[in-house]
């Protein structure tokens, strides 16, 4: 199946992102174009401060876009109410939840909030979805553990489980692999890859693990000061997009192995 025949879930057209400060637009990045299809794992890479988080926050509706358009399920993102949007997009943020006193089960159950009644009580269908989310992320045996007792790797899985419990076609993750060792980084990314493929979800994550992203993701968005590129990792390497990501005199990209090499 080629990617063209797949359903496009999230798309950006000539998108400009940034902040409104005192009614003046402070542009961080512009002319961003991509179409994310269902069942795809997409990595967002770029140097610190290039605007990865800003782009992700804009895509998840947490801050307004400055120019261009975002299409969510063929409809303009602005036309969704925040509750409707919560049915389509779930997020995993870099910030830790405010309360670490929550148990894993409580935290993951909160993902059902967009669907529960005013009391927030869970139906048996809700409970089933929560259980499935715990099983998918391999956190079932932690369900009664408090969040402050978890390791960083376990916490990240629990956050992903919460996003899964929200049961949305799109999941957006901001740097889900920071603070993790290589084994946990790889296992988180493999988990995401699995979820995208098996559950037919569109998963977009930002990361600094470019070599891991090249190996695991279906498509990549590369943000550079000049432009933002959207291709498969292979095509990006062919086009030499990674060569100019970092200053050439310091870090060299080896297109054979797909790795960055530090020059002395």
């Amino acid at each position: 199946m080629t990617s063209e025949s797949k359903h496009i879930v999230l798309a950006a057209k000539k998108l400009t992102v940034g902040y409104f400060r005192k009614k003046k637009a402070d542009i961080i990045s512009s002319n961003i174009n991509f179409q994310l299809a269902e069942g795809e794992l997409i990595a967002l890479v770029g140097t610190n401060g290039i605007g990865k988080s800003t782009l992700l926050r804009t895509l998840s509706g947490m801050q307004p876009l400055i120019n261009g358009a975002i299409q969510l399920n063929d409809k303009n993102l602005n036309s969704y109410t925040s509750l409707q949007r919560a049915n389509y997009v779930s997020v995993v943020l870099t910030e830790t939840p405010a309360s670490k006193n929550l148990t894993v089960l409580e935290l993951v159950s909160l993902g059902r909030q967009p669907y529960t009644n005013w009391m927030g009580s869970l139906s048996s269908a809700d409970k089933k979805i929560v259980t499935r989310a715990l099983e998918a992320t391999n956190t079932m045996d932690l369900f009664d553990t408090k969040c402050f007792e978890l390791s960083d790797g376990q916490l990240q899985r629990v956050y992903i489980a919460r996003a899964l419990a929200q049961d949305t076609p799109v999941i957006i993750l901001d740097e889900p692999t920071t603070h993790l060792d290589l084994f946990h980084r790889a296992s988180i990314l493999k988990l995401l890859k699995n979820l995208a493929a098996k559950n037919n979800k569109t998963i977009l994550f930002s990361t600094h693990e470019i070599d891991l992203a090249i190996q695991l993701s279906d498509k990549m968005i590369v943000m550079t000061p000049k432009a933002t590129y959207f291709e498969t990792p292979k095509d990006l390497i062919k086009a030499g997009r990674f060569d100019t990501l970092f200053p050439e005199e310091m870090i060299h990209f080896d297109s054979e192995t797909g790795r960055f090499i530090i020059k002395d």
Partner: peptide, 12 residues
Amino acid sequence: LLGENYAKSMGL
């Protein structure tokens, strides 16, 4: 309890 941004993302 999850923080403002998470709460917003769940439609609050």
